[in-house]
Amino acid sequence: MAKKLGFLVNIERCIGCHACEISCKSFYQLEPNMRRRRVQELPEDVVGTPVRAFVSTACNHCDDPACKKACPVGAYTKREDGIVVHNQDLCIGCQMCGKACPYSVPMFNPVKKKMDKCSMCYDRLDVGQLPICVEKCPLEAIQIVDYNEVQPANAVSEIPTFADTSITHPTTHFILHKPGKQSRRF
């Protein structure tokens, strides 16, 4: 059976250090203001009881990628292992993929005048290395999982701030904080 690779982001472990975001930006020498991975703070009631939570998101390498359908030049392909790859050589910079993606993942590179997005470092994966964000996370909060083989316990596909997953069926899953019990002094 073909693979279905996707990110598994452990929100419980993430401390919002941005190491994943910056290591990716540095590795790919991205232009100022450009990010292939973004870290953001979640609402404090994400699991019911108040917590300080961060989430790191990149391309969700969706099962039904809207970017691929919108692109007029066929610059997007979905590999057999599920990774959605953008071929910048074909891109004409129409920005339609950015509009069609519910997660606003593809970004316009103002210098190259082409779109840009996370490729799950497929060239590193192909030679047995981990994606740079996975490798550089000091808390091992990001993993690559083959969802056709493993369904991690407690993993959810939807979190607040994440757009409706029924549109493109993203492969990214999240592990949330375990709801704690709030104790109060009276």
């Binding site: 359908k69 919108a70 692109c71 007029p72 030049v73 066929g74 074909l90 004409i92």
Partner: peptide, 9 residues
């Protein structure tokens, strides 16, 4: 090149 993906786009 914008006519290349006429099947889906």
């Amino acid at each position: 090149r914008a006519i290349l993906n006429i099947k889906v786009s």
